[in-house]
Design a protein around this nucleic acid. Structure first.
Lengths: 208, 208
DNA sequence: GTTAGCATGTAAGGAGTTACATGATTTT
DNA sequence: AAAATCATGTAACTCCTTACATGCTAAC
């Protein structure tokens, strides 16, 4: 039952899936990944890590410390607490992805969910994209209607603002249409005979 | 020095400029005007009205009550506390508009400021639009650079997300360009008479 | 006469930021 | 040795929402 605050949790769990990391770097990746939409501060991240520890979804991996750091300082600077997923953490992540209800296509969560689509099964991807599309369409219609209702008593600037907002929404709907299309096409030509449910792997691209 | 929370204040003061209103209706107009971006709840609005009262920027106008309601219920339903601007409120609104520093083109305030452009002088309009443009351009470049830095280890979905975000920002920049253009054209053909400062190009200094 | 919508208000809390406090390591 | 950067963490605060409490008026 994804609450609102699960955004960070999902993102952290997702990033740790790739490789163990300490908070500071986690934050950098987080903000590189979602930077255009949102940015989290340490005041948000560290308490979240603490909570994930308590829940048993991540643990400190003292032996692991930054193995693959390329050039500088293999020496292991002091503080660095490297976290890694536990088995329960992996389960938790999977269930957050799969069990995403309607919250997954709301503004606060859609981008994060989308960012982890590579680890999401095709069915869920489609469900989220379609949910989002419907949501955007609704919003667009509501806005359009409201704009029509109040088109008197509006000056050129509020009209322009309205117009621009509607255009943005239309653009987003078209974007989602393309994505949905592309998802369906991929689903129709799988790389072999597998009909339906191939939830776990089949979509992994090469990384990490 | 416009704080963050001045958004609602500005909006309420601006709406009351048109005509006295009670809270319930104020909220409807507010959300019709800004609906696409944000929506305020009563839990936000009423405390704000209380504060504006205390500051002396609005006052209850008991005689005024909904004079021009078109069809239903001129009878004056119970609660309805109609507010109107005081002289200080008008001043306050004017100074919020004119004195808008860099905060005016940040995400939280830009749309509200834009919505009241009809009541804003040409110089300030241009300043805000240009500030916003610069801000968006910066953000776009930062995102583009970050995208380039991390283009390895990115799957098709995060790439797509990135691409879409960049496109949205480019679109916004173009939109602002058009608006700035149109503002300049309007400034170059004033409807005669009015002397005062020529806001054509040299307006780039005044940041508070 | 009860339901639906209008209208005002408050208390609790969620989600995040800023500013602070602390200290190690690297670079200059 | 100073400055910059890396790194962790907390406390206070902001801003807003949700849920509740209250009661009028209109309509069925």
């Amino acid at each position: 039952m994804a609450r609102r605050g699960d955004v960070l949790e999902l993102a952290v769990l997702g990033l740790l899936q790739d490789s163990p990391m300490h908070g500071y770097e986690l934050r950098k990746r987080l903000n590189a990944m979602l930077g255009s939409f949102r940015a989290f501060s340490y005041g948000t991240l560290y308490p979240c890590l603490k909570m994930l520890l308590e829940k048993g979804w991540i643990r400190e991996s003292d032996g692991e410390r930054a193995k693959e750091r390329p050039a500088h300082a293999l020496s292991g600077r002091r503080g660095r607490i490297v976290y890694q997923l536990t088995a329960e953490g992996k389960e938790r992540f999977a269930s957050l992805l799969a069990g995403s209800g309607s919250a997954a296509w709301e503004d606060e969560q859609f981008d994060v969910h989308f960012a982890f689509f590579s680890r999401t099964d095709a069915q869920t991807r489609l469900k989220i994209l379609e949910g989002r599309r419907t949501r955007m369409q609704e919003r667009l219609e509501k806005a359009h209607e409201a704009a029509h209702r109040t088109r008197e008593r509006r000056d050129r600037y509020t009209l322009e603002l309205q117009r621009h907002a509607e255009e943005s929404m239309e653009r987003e709907v078209r974007w989602l249409d393309d994505l949905i299309d592309s998802e369906r096409r991929r689903a129709d030509e799988p790389r072999s005979g597998s009909r339906r449910t191939r939830p776990s792997e089949s979509t992994r691209e090469g990384d990490s």
